[in-house]
């Protein structure tokens, strides 16, 4: 056994690309990796640049002067930015839970080989993968019929389920959860509801984590639903992503409380450019800090999802 392992290493060593090629490949990938993260670093630098520096030399990797003004300003305006942050978190948490519930129940039902209506439900989730009503019909139905305009439900429900996620979980339940434990639970008199919630869900945590993370990222990054369903007269309902859009051209969202500011704080001039970038940092940091740890779940989700069935 040990001998075999050594042979394999020797073969792998023999089959490696030449050292110079490896050097150039490595260099190339280091450059490519930098290209992927430099914009974020740049935005961080801008957010720490002083207003004077930005006015004088524009956005620069080496500002003339560093400053915390942008972050101080956001802290001062925490009633608006903070609320948006909480809205983002609330939508992400509640949306992910709702989505996971809807996706996992359907995935489980589709995975039961003896279920008589299995074909019906498979068609139910399969048809929308091929044909959709499109934005206009969905928008009109959601606003005029379901009354979702200016409601948090509009940010939660329409994106909660995707057939793709249902298939990921179905495939997982089918391949990983042995039929025998479900059968034996049934013989013991357990009901399907009980089996699902007390047996299946606890042993399926890796797959649930995968789908849950995909959902969370989707909710955290969603701005389109807000753009469609939340009017500008409901600014207090904006999640962070949409705050970024609304301050793109003017800072009204942040300055609307200006009249309530004490004379002392109104003297602090709004550092508009760096504040925008600071809010970008507030949006991105939670993801940038955590994705290196959860990316493995994503990768497994991608590979399960590309297994057809």
């Amino acid at each position: 056994m040990r001998k075999q392992k050594m042979d394999l290493d020797a073969v792998a060593r023999f089959n490696r690309i030449a050292a110079p090629t490896n050097f150039f490949f490595s260099l190339f990938f280091i450059l490519l990796a930098l290209v992927c993260v430099v914009p974020l670093v740049f935005v961080a630098i801008i957010s720490f640049s002083s207003n004077a520096s930005i006015q004088k030399i524009g956005y620069s990797f080496m500002p003339l002067e560093w400053s915390l003004d942008a972050y101080k300003y956001i802290w001062r305006e925490r009633s608006s930015v903070g609320t948006a942050f909480l809205v983002s978190i609330g939508i992400t948490v509640i949306g992910t839970i709702t989505g996971l519930f809807l996706t996992s129940t359907m995935g489980y039902v589709l995975s039961r080989p003896t279920f008589k209506l299995r074909r019906f439900f498979t068609m139910l989730i399969f048809i929308p993968m091929l044909f959709g009503g499109g934005l206009v019909a969905a928008y009109l139905i959601n606003t005029r019929m379901l009354g979702l305009q200016n409601s948090y439900l509009a940010l939660l429900l329409p994106v909660a389920v995707s057939s793709f996620n249902c298939i990921i979980l179905r495939t997982y339940f089918q391949t990983t959860v042995p039929d025998s434990i479900i059968e034996s639970a049934k013989i013991d008199g357990a009901r399907q509801l009980l089996i699902f919630f007390q047996m299946i869900l606890p042993i399926s945590l890796p797959a649930l984590a995968t789908v849950g993370l995909m959902l969370s990222i989707g909710y955290w990054n969603d701005w389109f639903s807000t753009m469609l369903y939340i009017g500008s007269d409901h600014q207090d309902m904006y999640p962070l992503q949409y705050v970024l859009i609304s301050i793109e051209r003017n800072m009204d969202f942040l300055t609307k409380n200006a009249q309530f500011m004490s004379p002392d704080s109104s003297r602090l001039k709004l550092p508009a450019e760096s504040t925008r970038m600071a809010i970008v940092m507030v949006v991105v940091l939670p993801i940038a800090m955590s994705y290196p740890y959860f990316q493995k779940y994503f990768i497994s989700g991608l590979t399960i999802g590309s297994v057809k069935g």
């Binding site: 989730i125 959709g132 909660a160």
Partner: peptide
Amino acid sequence: DIELTLLALPTTVWYLLFAYLPMFG
């Protein structure tokens, strides 16, 4: 089968409202 159908019911309602109604629309 009936229990499994019950389990699939919420998602089915979701599909009717957010996928099939727009198709009709």
